[in-house]
Design a binder for these strands. Sequence first.
DNA 1: GTCTATAACTTGATAGAC
DNA 2: GTCTATCAAGTTATAGAC
Lengths: 183, 183
Amino acid sequence: MLTKDKIYVEAARLFQEKGYAAASMRDLAERLQLRPSSLYSHIRSKEDLLEKICFDNAHRYLQVMEDCLQRPVSAAQKVEQLLRRHIRIALEDPTSITVFNDEWRHLPQPLLERFLSLRRQYEKSFKQLLEEAMQEGAFKARPPQLVLNTLLSSLLWLHRLAAKDEKPDEDVLVGLLFEGLEG
Amino acid sequence: MLTKDKIYVEAARLFQEKGYAAASMRDLAERLQLRPSSLYSHIRSKEDLLEKICFDNAHRYLQVMEDCLQRPVSAAQKVEQLLRRHIRIALEDPTSITVFNDEWRHLPQPLLERFLSLRRQYEKSFKQLLEEAMQEGAFKARPPQLVLNTLLSSLLWLHRLAAKDEKPDEDVLVGLLFEGLEG
DNA sequence: GTCTATAACTTGATAGAC
DNA sequence: GTCTATCAAGTTATAGAC
């Protein structure tokens, strides 16, 4: 694996563990068994690391959204697929949801606006899908923004289980979201 | 209001906005129209600010838990009360859930362990309540840890609405958690 | 592409006048 | 209890030898 790629992988882990602001380039260098200055032969700045991590994941989620929208199934089934893909991404690559959700606010200013724009685009598609499913009668009619926020937030804890062997069951989790506590 | 209290209030807001690590004592002083050094006539350190915010909220949630456990109602109804109290706290004092959930990891080491102990205590009570409700047949039987994490996470977005006038409806949110998307 | 050395700056916190 | 002045340590990043 290229040193550059190793740096990005380790940076994502470090940002997840300590948060972007509390993570230092010294930390990062030490984990890679390099001197801090050597990092700069591969990357331009700490902010570049955050930028790549945030935007790679933003595009990944937008790609997932596109895939799900194209499927020839009902809106409710598209939502289910979307949730399942979210769960899988969170379990396979736990840094993704964390950085995507918690650390983007540290992006420097024109990037921050671009990032928020992608995020709004994603949320807009998701909300439309929820509204469709409600019109179909598959979902109970509720304010789509509230439902969207609740759904996305409810998956946020998944990344914490990264280290543990015991992964939560995808079907049970989807069941909980679809049927609620009362099931 | 005492200067000391103003400092704590503003610190909580600042930590919520920028995160503990990215928030500087200079930021804080400026918002209070003080010189940075003046802060230290009222508080001992930046860490003290985080400590108070985290532990005050930990005790507040434990108090809410105690209140709910003592009510002479079914386990499922206790869970509902607990969720409603969580929602109200998040809407009334949006810094609470945020700092309590995101910034505690920056507590210095013996405090961190004490904090996690309180948190485990809270989660243990909550899990027991969920298990009771499942045994009563009010809730579908699912791994309690999964349900707990999903519930607590699903409320995390509430703090973002702090500024907006439009607050989400408590009943709709509780309905979504109890009945799921399909309602 | 790694290293040593260091520049330029920000951080939390203190000393001491008023 | 606020201020000015300042410190010691930590930060990102660069220069230049090898």
